[in-house]
């Protein structure tokens, strides 16, 4: 996680870091899929593969003081925000060494030190929390940003409209980050939204709204950096819609009856990692050797994460009801 938002033209090192973050997400999740099949990970597992540019790019706009809320498809956000892959993987395994000591699992990742407030599986349920976190900052005169990720499905929820309205009414420093992957589980956006141009919804709340290519990590970063600066400087909330695509099934139990395989293949031609890799090579930033070294380092990190999770211990049953209430 960067401690300073990028302002100057991106350096080669920074661009390689963007690539590395996307590779980390992808490799982490490929491991998760394998481990799911192996029975090491259970419950619901929602993979972000295809959407990596959004988390990798948007989170560059934040400082360590800012807050992040995400959805149940949030491994990528947690990784980029700075959560260690091993702690994350231990949580996937339900181990005591996981970020939530096995109480949250894939869908509910939290990290107090990173101001990472979950991991919410109630679609739209994180938006009101973002409004409140931003209100707390405003009342305490802190120039912080609360970044709230949600999907196109959340736009159909009442809480989206309520939260957009309240954030704008009170001019709160919220960055509304919509990851539009075209499907609310199996329901394509045209079948759920009368207005499919989601950025236009912001206008109803007197809020700036912008559509961004969510497959281009640098476009995502640039838009998020500009928006975060506006929000941080008291300009009120901003809505960004990132157009992206999920390659994998909604979760691990999805026969994908609702979409054409050709559509998936078409989106893969715009793959955020492959296209960025090509751009960096074209501009002389990336070589075969650098890419191979990146891959090796990421592979090693994820192998170690799996080993750490595997070696982890189980939370004692005696602690089952611990943390329902604060010890007093």
């Amino acid at each position: 996680m960067s401690t300073q938002p990028a302002t100057a033209p991106a350096t080669a090192a920074h661009r390689l870091e963007l690539l590395r973050q996307m590779l980390r997400i992808r490799r982490f999740e490929e491991k998760c899929a394998e481990l799911y099949s192996a029975g090491k990970i259970r419950g619901f597992l929602h993979l972000y593969i295809g959407e990596e540019a959004v988390a990798a790019g948007a989170l560059q706009a934040l400082t360590a003081d800012d807050a992040v809320l995400a959805t149940y498809r949030e491994h990528g956000h947690a990784l980029v925000r700075g959560m260690a892959a091993d702690v994350l993987m231990a949580e996937m395994f339900g181990k005591a060494q996981g970020c939530c000591r096995g109480r949250g699992g894939s869908m509910h990742l939290f990290d107090g030190a990173l101001r990472f407030y979950g991991g919410s599986a109630i679609v739209g349920g994180g938006l009101p929390l973002a409004v409140g976190l931003a209100l707390a900052d405003t009342l305490q005169h802190r120039a912080r940003v609360t970044a709230c990720f949600f999907g196109d499905g959340a736009v159909a929820e009442g809480e989206f409209h309520e939260a957009m309205n309240l954030a704008s009414l009170w001019k709160l420093p919220v960055l509304f980050l919509c990851e539009n992957n075209l499907y609310a589980m199996g329901t394509r956006i045209e079948r759920a939204q009368a207005q499919t141009d989601l950025a236009r919804k912001a206008a109803a709340y007197a809020m700036p709204g912008k559509t961004v290519d969510g497959m281009d990590v640098e476009a995502v970063e640039a838009a998020a950096v500009r928006a975060a600066a506006h929000v941080r400087n008291g300009g009120g909330p901003i809505f960004l819609e990132f157009r992206t695509y999920r390659y994998r099934a909604h979760s691990m139990f999805d026969a994908e009856l609702y979409r054409d395989k050709r559509e998936v293949e078409e989106w893969k031609t715009r793959d955020p990692i492959a296209t960025f890799d090509a751009r960096l090579r074209l501009e002389g930033v990336l070589t075969d050797e650098t890419r191979a070294a990146l891959d090796r380092a990421v592979e090693k990190e994820m192998d170690e994460a799996v080993r750490f999770a595997d070696a982890g211990t189980l939370e004692p049953i005696e602690d089952l009801t611990k943390d329902v209430y604060t010890p007093r």
């Binding site: 807050a67 009101p128 931003a134 209100l135």
Partner: peptide, 9 residues
């Protein structure tokens, strides 16, 4: 929900 968020904040 904003109350919850403000409490967290």
């Amino acid at each position: 929900g904003a109350g919850i968020g403000a409490a967290l904040g």
